[in-house]
Amino acid sequence: MYASAAQYNHPPTYPVTMICNAIDKAFFENDTLNKIYAGVVAFRGNATCKVNAPQNVSEIIQGWRWQTCSEMVIPIGIGNDSMFTVDPYNFESFANGCQKEFGVTPRPHWVTTYYGGHDITLVLQRFGSNIIFSNGLRDPYSIGGVLNNISDSIIAINTVNGSHCLDILSAKETDPEWLVQQRKKETEIMKGWITQYYADLAALNETWTLFSP
């Protein structure tokens, strides 16, 4: 519940705020279990049973699991400096899980070897172009994002109230104005790239025409 609420903490409900408000207003103020229950009810509704029901795994979720096993190994663990139970990252255990589910052995260094991620700014300055790094700063993953422009065509767009992938989700009538403007800005940037591409292509074709026999 925490991971889902924190990662997708987007309007109009802002689930983290909703859960925290419920915890703060719990009937028995000093009862930790009651506070937890109040947060769960605020997020999932006041059902009679809180046991997680079986879920149909979507292609997106299954695809992400495959990608983290085959290409993007993300070594996330929980240390002693967290409110959660200590759960250090264990590559051997992770690899065994990937073998069991997909029959593949993770390559933990493949993505940084192939794309060069040890110094992303240096790497992208040398070969990258036409990239927008969109960061919703409410998303915990944003701490590892590219938060500053790298070049004129490698651009970081940060939104204080944004969350994980919010700008690429379907537009809704309840979308706040800042989100509408963010999508508009990103669209205008991409239109500019496309316009420039066709202008460059036309100029190249004209050059070939002038010098062709």
Rank of each mutant, 00 (worst) to 15 (best):
Y198V: 08
R138F: 03
S151V: 07
T207E: 10
T121L: 07
N21T: 06
P176N: 13
E188M: 04
S163D: 11
V40C: 02
R183M: 12
V160M: 08
D152W: 12
P12Y: 02
D167L: 00
G145E: 08
D152K: 14
R44G: 08
Q55G: 11
I168T: 14
N9T: 14
Q7A: 07
V111D: 04
N34F: 02
T13E: 14
T207C: 05
F43E: 03
T112C: 07
C165H: 15
A38F: 10
V160W: 06
L204D: 15
I143V: 01
K25S: 15
A202S: 13
T85C: 03
I194H: 05
V40I: 09
R44D: 03
T17Q: 15
N148C: 14
Q55F: 05
P108Q: 13
P140R: 00
D81S: 04
T105Q: 01
E206M: 09
D31V: 07
G97H: 14
T113K: 00
N9I: 13
V160C: 12
V16Q: 13
E186W: 02
T105Y: 00
D31N: 14
Y115I: 08
G136T: 02
G97N: 14
Y8V: 04
C20Q: 15
Y37S: 13
I157Y: 03
N148G: 09
H118K: 12
V86I: 13
P15Q: 09
E101K: 08
V51F: 00
G128P: 00
C20D: 14
T207G: 01
V16S: 11
P75E: 11
D167A: 06
G162I: 03
I61F: 11
F102Y: 04
W178N: 11
P75V: 14
I131K: 01
P176Q: 06
S4N: 02
D81H: 03
T187H: 07
T174V: 09
N34T: 00
F211G: 01
L166A: 06
Q125S: 04
V86P: 07
N34K: 02
F91R: 08
V180E: 08
I150Q: 07
T187V: 04
Y198W: 10
I132F: 06
I74F: 14
R138W: 00
E206T: 11
I131L: 09
H10G: 12
E206Y: 09
K191E: 05
A6F: 11
W178L: 07
Q67T: 07
V146M: 07
V123S: 02
W178P: 08
